[in-house]
């Protein structure tokens, strides 16, 4: 085993199932999202025109709690799936450790804010 010289190395070598669990999560959430997202695109971009998504139409549709649940499931799963996928890319391409920590922190913060915004928006109407 390569001996750890820094805390980050030690953490990378510590016994943890984090990467395994994310790997499984990516596949399960991906499988669910295939149906949810393709369904969402079909219903909002093929069946009806994009310009039909007016304020009145969206509010009327979201009166039904089933659509709220459908949309929030997409929101939550895509958020986790996408942010984790971006984390893979950041860990691959941003090689300097201080930079990587900053990029990750800023990216996670933006994502968390947008997730909160989306959730509040969805349940405020």
């Amino acid at each position: 085993m390569i001996r750890a010289r820094t805390f980050t190395d030690a953490r990378a070598q510590a016994h943890s199932n984090a990467e395994l669990n994310w790997w499984i999560f990516m596949r399960i959430s991906g499988l669910i999202l295939v149906f949810l997202v393709l369904g969402h695109i079909y219903m909002t971009f093929i069946q009806v025109s994009e310009s039909d998504a007016t304020y009145t139409a969206v509010v009327a549709k979201l009166q039904n709690p089933a659509w709220k649940f459908y949309d929030w499931t997409i929101l939550a799963l895509t958020m986790l799936h996408g942010v984790n996928g971006a984390r893979y890319s950041i860990e691959d391409y941003v090689r300097s450790r201080p930079n990587r920590a900053w990029v990750k922190t800023i990216f996670y913060t933006i994502s968390a804010v947008i997730f909160t915004l989306g959730t509040v928006g969805l349940f405020s109407i």
Partner: peptide, 14 residues
């Protein structure tokens, strides 16, 4: 298998 399960191991394979 534990070494393969680390952050640097088999899960980095795409």
């Amino acid at each position: 298998l534990n070494i393969m399960n680390q952050n640097t191991g088999v899960w980095r394979c795409r």
